[in-house]
């Protein structure tokens, strides 16, 4: 019987070395370690032995069972790692193949810039006030200190409707009057709003000019709004919009609805002010027209200009978008060519 133990041991270990796959491994286990396997048969044979041999035989069979079990586990681990290695090797793909084309949507570039504006101005306490596109001549011009035949009316080529009292707003500024009248409670409350929106001018459509364009106007009215506040507020905007170190230049200018008026330039962010084609080698980019709200405009909004003051500014999101993305042609904006839009 002792010989049979040794024979089974050798036979089993030899067979195990030949096993390479999962199925064969399971077969080996049931053949030797299973309920009806060779080891169990040896245990079964114990009863037929003389009593004095039983203990020693039993110990040896136990040892065999332990050895074969360990051998099985080793083999199983080895085979599993071999299989894993093979699976990994076989699972290799050509990662250079084109990706699955997931569809990307996108906001219009103009909307993106408007959002940036709105976020920055909201942080500074300016809320959005939406005004109308089709306006009365009175709101677009007269109430903004541009009476009929005022020279500054020449600065803006206006789309009139067939009713001469009505036009397409040439700027967002008529919204100033509407905001003051709506939010000012008869000239008794402070206001801080921005007025974004589409504006219209009767111009030749070229790479530089369009018949419709968006503007963002800002308006702050209070009992003690100072020109230094205007400078500080716009400088803060420039820092948030362009860069924390953005340098700003202020130039005297003229708008009928502000006085004093000023143009605001920011140091060209494309050349860091060194001078490039975009800034026409001046180092400056014009970003806003602004000024202290004209006393007549305050009056037209319901405020007493000897008690109240305010500032206003206007900016052109398309121009800023063009500068930021190197867009050479303003006509791209409303042509909606998907090849353009998908680049945002």
């Amino acid at each position: 019987m002792t010989d049979s133990i040794e024979q089974i041991r050798r036979e089993a270990l030899d067979a195990l070395r030949e096993v390479t796959g999962g199925g064969a491994l399971t077969g080996w286990r049931s053949q030797y370690l299973g309920r009806r396997g060779a080891v169990n048969k040896l245990f079964g044979a114990i009863g037929g032995l003389p009593p004095e041999e039983r203990a020693a035989f039993g110990q040896r069979v136990n040892a065999l069972q332990g050895e074969l079990s360990r051998a099985f586990e080793e083999r199983e681990t080895l085979i599993q790692s071999q299989l894993m290695a093979r699976d990994l090797e076989e699972g290799e793909i050509d990662i250079s193949l084109p990706a699955y084309p997931r569809r990307q949507g996108g906001l219009h570039p103009s909307t993106r810039t408007h959002r940036e504006f709105q976020r920055i101005w909201a942080d500074m306490g300016f809320q959005v006030y939406q005004s109308r596109d089709v306006e009365e001549d009175e709101f677009n011009f007269s109430l903004l200190n541009l009476p009929p035949h005022h020279p500054a009316r020449d600065m803006q080529d206006t789309f009139y409707t067939t009713d001469p009292r009505v036009l397409l707003r040439t700027h967002t500024s008529p919204g100033q009057i509407r905001a003051m009248r709506e939010l000012g409670a008869g000239g008794s409350r402070p206001i801080r709003v921005i007025l974004p929106g589409m504006c219209y001018r009767q111009e030749q459509v070229t790479a530089r000019s369009e018949i419709q364009f968006t503007q963002v106007e800002g308006l702050a009215i209070g009992r003690n709004i100072r020109m230094s506040d205007l400078k500080g507020t716009i400088a803060e905007f420039a820092k948030r919009m362009y860069s924390p170190g953005a340098k700003v230049r202020y130039r005297a200018s003229y708008f009928p609805f502000t006085e004093p008026s000023m143009e605001v330039d920011v140091e060209c962010f494309l050349c860091d002010g060194e001078g490039c084609r975009v800034c026409k080698y001046t180092g400056w980019l014009e970003i806003a027209g602004s000024g202290m709200v004209h006393p007549d405009v305050l009056r037209n909004g319901g405020y007493d200009p000897s008690q109240w003051s305010g500032f206003a500014f206007g900016m052109g999101p398309e121009r800023i978008t063009m500068l930021k993305h190197g867009i050479q042609d303003i006509r791209y904006f409303w042509a909606n060519d998907l090849r353009f839009l998908r680049q945002f």
Binding site: P190, R192, G222, N224, R226, G232, T233
Partner: peptide, 10 residues
């Protein structure tokens, strides 16, 4: 100078 608005906030 550049200042921060000190006026009443709406």
């Amino acid at each position: 100078p550049e200042s921060i608005m000190a006026d009443e906030m709406p």
